[in-house]
């Protein structure tokens, strides 16, 4: 077996990697190498075609791709596409370059992928779905499924694209994605503001009797600004989350305890 390989990936190869990526990526996730063995599993058949079975090159390649690896599971095949493009051109000699490329790309791509696919889209789609669901309407849930099917299609076509375009793809995407991320986060912040005003059904049931005058506190608050209580509570929890050693799970339990106490005291109630 020569070190330089001349195997070009075909549509069949791409489909095989994509199938493995869609159904089996992250199944081997573990604390030691995270997605490491997954990276190898996804392209093992292609590596065997590139280097040939039982060659020292293949062993070296398998070891290279069984190292620590962790990135966002929506964009990982971009890295694999670029990797395969280099390896099929340069062979086993490129493995050091490839391993640098992997570590170099997994961080930035995880940042882009996590902010768009892992938090922004699920947040917006989830908010719409949940908003409809709490009213007993399953339509928003179906919208989410459709949106994710579209994302799956994008995940499917990004691999051959990355293979063709190589490293230029990442730099090309960067500028456009920045503008898009900025606009999308703006929409995200705006939508959260709107959700705070609609989906937190909390009010102050406290009624004060001063002599013969009864003051319904909620009424007074509504005069200042409707939905002021939900707004303030979100602000309070936001502050709480920013404190040291605070995790989201802890915050959830603190909120439950405080809500039970305030409800028993008659300060807060379900709207």
């Amino acid at each position: 077996m020569a070190t330089k390989t001349n195997y070009k990936l075909t549509k069949k190869d791409f489909n095989q990697i994509n199938r493995r990526n869609l159904f089996f990526n992250q199944l081997g996730w573990n604390y030691e190498k995270m997605q490491g063995s997954g990276y190898l599993f996804l392209m093992l058949p292609q590596l065997r075609k590139l280097y040939g079975d039982h060659t020292p090159e293949l062993k070296k390649a398998m070891k290279t791709h069984n190292q620590f690896f962790n990135t966002n599971p929506w964009v990982n095949t971009i890295i694999q596409g670029i990797d395969l493009a280099i390896e099929s051109k340069e062979g086993a000699e490129s493995l050091e370059t490839v391993s640098g490329l992997k570590t170099g790309l997994m961080g930035p791509l995880a940042a882009i992928g996590d902010s768009i696919f892992a938090s922004l889209l699920p947040a917006i789609l989830g908010a719409i779905a949940a908003n409809m669901a709490v009213q007993g309407n399953p339509f928003g849930v179906v919208i989410w499924l459709i949106a994710n099917l579209i994302i799956m299609y994008i995940r499917w076509i990004q691999l051959p694209l990355a293979y063709r375009e190589g490293t230029t793809l990442v730099t090309k995407m960067q500028g456009q994605l920045n503008a898009l991320t900025d606009a999308a986060t703006l929409l995200g912040v705006y939508v959260v503001g709107a959700l705070v005003a609609t989906l937190i059904n909390i009010q102050v049931p406290f009624v004060a009797h001063i002599g013969k005058v009864t003051v319904t506190l909620q009424n007074e608050i509504d005069m200042i600004l409707p939905k002021l209580v939900p707004g303030l509570l979100v602000g309070l929890i936001y502050w709480l989350l920013g404190r040291k050693k605070m995790t989201s799970t802890k915050a959830i339990f603190i909120v439950i305890i405080v809500a039970v106490v305030c409800s028993a005291l008659g300060i807060l109630g379900k709207g």
Binding site: L195, V196, N201, V255, A259, V260, C262, L268, G269, K270
Partner: peptide
């Protein structure tokens, strides 16, 4: 009440 507040 806590259930209603959790979305916050």
């Amino acid at each position: 009440t806590a259930g209603a507040l959790l979305p916050a």
